[in-house]
Computed example of a mutant assay.
Amino acid sequence: MKLGMYTIEMKRPTTGELFAAIKNAGFSEVQFDFSSVCDEQLPFSFAPGLLEEIQRQAVQNKIEIVAVNGTFNMIHPSKTVREDGYKRFASIAEASRELNCNFITLCTGSRNTKSMWVWHEDNQEPEAWEDLLVSTDKVLEQAERYDLILGIECEPNNCINTPDLARKLLDTFKSPRLKIIMDIANLFQKGQARKENVRPIMDHAFELIGQDIYLAHGKDIKDGDDLNPTYAGNGIVDFEYFLEKLDQVGYTGGMLLHGIHDERYFADSVAYINDVISKHKTKIKKAP
Rank of each mutant, 00 (worst) to 15 (best):
residue 66 V to Q: 02
residue 129 W to V: 01
residue 174 K to P: 00
residue 267 A to N: 08
residue 284 I to P: 03
residue 260 I to C: 07
residue 149 I to V: 14
residue 275 D to E: 13
residue 82 R to L: 09
residue 200 P to F: 13
residue 193 A to D: 11
residue 249 V to S: 02
residue 270 V to E: 08
residue 206 F to E: 01
residue 242 F to D: 01
residue 103 F to G: 00
residue 92 I to C: 06
residue 77 P to K: 13
residue 16 G to S: 05
residue 66 V to F: 04
residue 14 T to I: 08
residue 274 N to G: 11
residue 91 S to A: 15
residue 5 M to C: 15
residue 113 T to N: 03
residue 57 Q to T: 08
residue 51 L to C: 06
residue 96 S to F: 09
residue 107 C to R: 05
residue 223 D to C: 02
residue 41 Q to I: 04
residue 134 V to H: 12
residue 102 N to Y: 03
residue 258 H to N: 11
residue 77 P to S: 15
residue 234 N to K: 02
residue 152 I to C: 02
residue 100 N to V: 06
residue 57 Q to M: 14
residue 196 E to Y: 08
residue 18 L to F: 04
residue 123 N to M: 06
residue 134 V to R: 14
residue 40 E to M: 03
residue 274 N to V: 07
residue 15 T to C: 15
residue 187 L to I: 07
residue 256 L to N: 15
residue 222 K to C: 13
residue 80 T to S: 15
residue 31 Q to S: 07
residue 279 K to Y: 12
residue 146 Y to C: 06
residue 205 A to S: 12
residue 40 E to G: 00
residue 272 Y to T: 10
residue 121 E to G: 08
residue 76 H to L: 09
residue 128 A to F: 00
residue 247 D to C: 01
residue 95 A to F: 05
residue 253 G to W: 10
residue 58 A to W: 09
residue 35 S to F: 03
residue 53 E to T: 15
residue 5 M to S: 09
residue 120 H to A: 10
residue 272 Y to K: 07
residue 11 K to L: 09
residue 21 A to K: 11
residue 192 Q to I: 11
residue 79 K to P: 00
residue 279 K to I: 07
residue 243 L to R: 06
residue 118 V to W: 04
residue 116 M to V: 03
residue 142 Q to K: 05
residue 14 T to L: 05
residue 63 I to Y: 07
residue 194 R to P: 01
residue 154 C to W: 00
residue 186 N to A: 07
residue 67 A to M: 13
residue 271 A to S: 12
residue 195 K to T: 14
residue 80 T to M: 13
residue 72 F to Y: 15
residue 89 F to D: 04
residue 283 K to R: 15
residue 225 D to G: 15
residue 269 S to P: 09
residue 155 E to S: 00
residue 252 T to I: 04
residue 107 C to V: 09
residue 244 E to L: 10
residue 265 Y to W: 14
residue 261 H to M: 11
residue 272 Y to F: 15
residue 214 Y to A: 10
residue 55 Q to L: 14
residue 227 L to R: 04
residue 19 F to G: 03
residue 79 K to M: 06
residue 249 V to N: 02
residue 267 A to R: 13
residue 239 F to K: 06
residue 115 S to W: 09
residue 106 L to C: 01
residue 1 M to E: 09
residue 280 H to S: 12
residue 243 L to S: 06
residue 42 L to T: 09
residue 152 I to D: 00
residue 56 R to V: 01
residue 192 Q to M: 15
residue 121 E to W: 10
residue 133 L to N: 01
residue 161 N to E: 01
residue 112 N to M: 08
residue 29 E to C: 03
residue 104 I to G: 04
residue 199 R to N: 13
residue 151 G to K: 09
residue 56 R to M: 11
residue 76 H to F: 09
residue 193 A to M: 13
residue 55 Q to W: 12
residue 257 L to R: 03
residue 200 P to I: 12
residue 150 L to I: 10
residue 39 D to F: 07
residue 94 E to G: 10
residue 219 K to R: 15
residue 20 A to Q: 11
residue 37 V to R: 03
residue 171 D to W: 00
residue 286 K to D: 14
residue 69 N to Y: 00
residue 234 N to R: 08
residue 177 R to I: 01
residue 29 E to P: 00
residue 219 K to Q: 09
residue 68 V to F: 02
residue 62 K to Y: 05
residue 240 E to N: 11
residue 117 W to C: 07
residue 54 I to Q: 06
residue 220 D to Y: 10
residue 66 V to H: 04
residue 61 N to C: 12
residue 282 T to M: 10
residue 242 F to R: 04
residue 9 E to L: 12
